[in-house]
């Protein structure tokens, strides 16, 4: 019972936080989306210890486990665009596939090349654990 209450309090706090970030972006006319500002501010609050991990972890863990759910209703919106994709056909499909495949190669290769500096590969593997748990 108490666990459930804590969960919903955390959920409410996160929702209020996201809403506030959205409003700040709108009012100040910042050139970034509200959720990006929200992530940056919440990350800063966590790093400075103003917000503790335990304050949000129950609700945040649940939301992150089901993050894909939120994109299901958004993806359903594609049904409206059948016509556009039908008219422009292959050019659009090719553009979308190629412009996803090229950066995929670029990011993956660069990330691995830049990160594995000589002599450090071995030790690094061990340090790849989440900190602050």
């Amino acid at each position: 019972m108490q666990q459930t209450l804590i969960f919903f309090c955390q959920l409410g706090a996160l929702a209020a936080f996201a809403w506030t970030a959205d409003q700040v972006v709108k009012i100040c006319g910042l050139p970034i989306p509200g959720n990006v500002l929200g992530i940056i501010v919440l990350f800063t609050l966590l790093c400075t210890g103003i917000v503790k991990e335990s304050h949000i972890s129950a609700a945040a863990g649940f939301l992150l486990r089901h993050l894909v759910f939120f994109f299901v209703p958004v993806a359903v919106g594609l049904m409206n665009w059948g016509g556009v994709f039908y008219d422009y056909g292959w050019a659009l499909l090719a553009a979308i596939v190629v412009s996803a495949a090229l950066p995929l190669l670029v990011v993956s290769k660069l990330a691995r090349a830049l990160r594995h500096r000589p002599g450090q590969g071995g030790e690094r593997q061990k340090e790849e654990k989440p900190c602050g748990q």
Partner: peptide, 24 residues
């Protein structure tokens, strides 16, 4: 869709938690 995505903002903001855990 609007009802179901109401918590999308909260879910996206929650990404700060894994970022924090891997900050180093």
């Amino acid at each position: 869709k609007d009802i179901m995505t109401a918590l999308m903002g909260a879910a996206t903001v929650s990404l700060a938690l894994p970022l924090y855990r891997f900050r180093k």
